[in-house]
Computed example of a mutant assay.
Amino acid sequence: MQLTPDDIVVFTLAGWEVNATIVNTWIVMALLVGISMLITRNLRPDVPPNRWRTTLEVIVKLIQGQIEEVTRNSARHVMYFAGTLFLFIALSNLMLVIPGFSPPTSSLSTTAALALSVLVAVPIFGIASGGVGHYLKTFIEPSIIMLPFNIIGEFSRGISLAIRLYGNVMSGAVIAAILLTVAPFFFPVIMDMLGLLTGMIQAYIFAILATVYISSATAEPDHPVLKKEDKP
């Protein structure tokens, strides 16, 4: 049994093996784009909202509200990034109930790519908010002696994000595989429900952690909540 979609070759293109991780990632992205286009195609003030538009607005408001509680400042620019991360991870994990579909988040390459995007986004948001000088200054706080430790801390964030998401998804797959060998007709329903629950929780945690890291890089130095030393 293959527990990671990296081992599943879907087709070969010009001598290159395209695995299930790549294919399923594009499927999730296509679904997100397609659903968004269908819901927002008549998004005009003169058109009354339907149930799909209302559902989308509720999701956006919930994401924005969670981000505003963390950032305590302008959350719209962070919402586009963190919200996209949440929706991608959540939809990937929700599609676990589809027979034969291996979520791309169960691949370490996908979780590492998501963590890398956070690592790149943190300095981009930090520099855009306070300039290069302000962002670089955070690495020598509270003293220049902390410079190497702060640099190591920046990279350890990405590693922890990738391993955290990958480990939780893979642990669920391993447990499901063990239980299916014991009672294949009873445990699938239970494991699917647990998989959906843990998948949503992991999407939420990943997006919130990304928001915390970005908000710490964009916070003012005298902010009482988002100081460098207050970060998890």
Rank of each mutant, 00 (worst) to 15 (best):
160 S>F: 02
116 L>D: 01
148 P>I: 05
122 V>K: 08
169 V>S: 15
149 F>V: 08
115 A>E: 03
169 V>E: 10
113 A>N: 03
139 F>S: 06
150 N>R: 07
133 G>V: 11
131 G>M: 08
113 A>H: 00
131 G>V: 06
108 L>I: 10
132 V>K: 12
107 S>F: 09
128 A>N: 13
142 P>F: 10
144 I>Y: 03
109 S>W: 03
128 A>Q: 14
156 S>C: 06
161 L>N: 09
154 E>W: 15
102 S>P: 07
105 T>S: 07
146 M>V: 09
156 S>L: 14
173 A>T: 13
144 I>G: 05
108 L>Y: 12
160 S>M: 05
128 A>H: 13
128 A>R: 15
144 I>D: 00
119 L>V: 11
144 I>V: 07
117 S>E: 07
159 I>A: 10
137 K>I: 06
165 L>E: 08
111 T>I: 04
168 N>S: 01
131 G>Q: 08
127 I>T: 01
171 S>F: 14
127 I>V: 08
138 T>L: 15
146 M>F: 14
118 V>N: 11
133 G>T: 13
152 I>K: 07
106 S>E: 14
124 I>N: 00
119 L>Q: 14
139 F>N: 05
126 G>L: 13
108 L>A: 09
148 P>L: 12
142 P>T: 07
125 F>V: 02
120 V>G: 02
167 G>Q: 02
139 F>H: 01
123 P>C: 13
172 G>V: 03
150 N>I: 02
144 I>E: 05
115 A>G: 03
157 R>A: 08
168 N>D: 01
124 I>R: 03
158 G>H: 07
168 N>R: 06
100 G>C: 06
161 L>C: 08
148 P>Q: 10
144 I>T: 04
143 S>M: 03
106 S>A: 15
143 S>H: 10
125 F>I: 00
171 S>V: 05
106 S>L: 12
141 E>Q: 14
166 Y>N: 13
102 S>V: 09
167 G>R: 04
152 I>F: 14
121 A>V: 00
131 G>C: 06
150 N>A: 04
170 M>F: 13
114 L>F: 14
124 I>K: 00
130 G>P: 07
111 T>Q: 05
128 A>P: 00
144 I>A: 11
134 H>Q: 15
105 T>D: 04
164 R>Y: 15
148 P>N: 11
154 E>H: 15
150 N>L: 02
153 G>C: 02
162 A>L: 07
135 Y>K: 12
160 S>E: 04
105 T>Q: 02
169 V>K: 14
143 S>Y: 09
121 A>N: 06
157 R>P: 00
115 A>D: 03
109 S>A: 13
150 N>C: 06
117 S>F: 10
122 V>S: 08
101 F>M: 11
158 G>L: 07
154 E>L: 14
123 P>I: 13
163 I>N: 02
160 S>N: 06
151 I>Y: 01
